[in-house]
Amino acid sequence: MTTAVELIAAGTAVLSREAMYLDERRWDEWVALFPTDCEFWVPTYTSEGTLTKNPKTELSLMYFRGRGGLEDRVVRIRSGRAPAAIPLPRTTHIVSNILPLAPPEPTIVRLRSSWACHAYFPLMNENHTFFGRAEYELSLRDGQWLIAKKKTILENDRIPFPIDVYCL
């Protein structure tokens, strides 16, 4: 019997690996953290204090139902034909304040995190910190904990540099 503490630790490890894979540009391993039927959602604010609630009827910064949307981003990064990704910004993700959103179950763990992504844009010799919080639904599939759902809130949403999945 896996304890709640062990389940949360397993989920926390996934969040750390996600950040590491993005920072180390290990794109295939990053994509493999998501099952094919994942949901990846970055809502927009509608004004100073309100977020969009329904990606079907309201605007998102990104919304992918299925891993294909994430695979597309990797194809873009590797294409060598995306000016915004030549050169790629160098990033360091800091993920903290990880807490359960609900009591963990043997195959489902729901966590929230606070995150910051420090991005250095070599072309402009400038830094920017993207930051916010995120909610995860982690799912145990064939012995692997995967990110079945991720909702990322970008708090500083007046965006001064082009963004991609590696900025979030």
Binding site: Y45, T46, S47, T52, S60, D157, I159, P160
Partner: peptide
């Protein structure tokens, strides 16, 4: 206009 807004510089 569909709710949600995108602003960038």
């Amino acid at each position: 206009a569909i709710p949600g807004r995108v602003a960038y510089t």
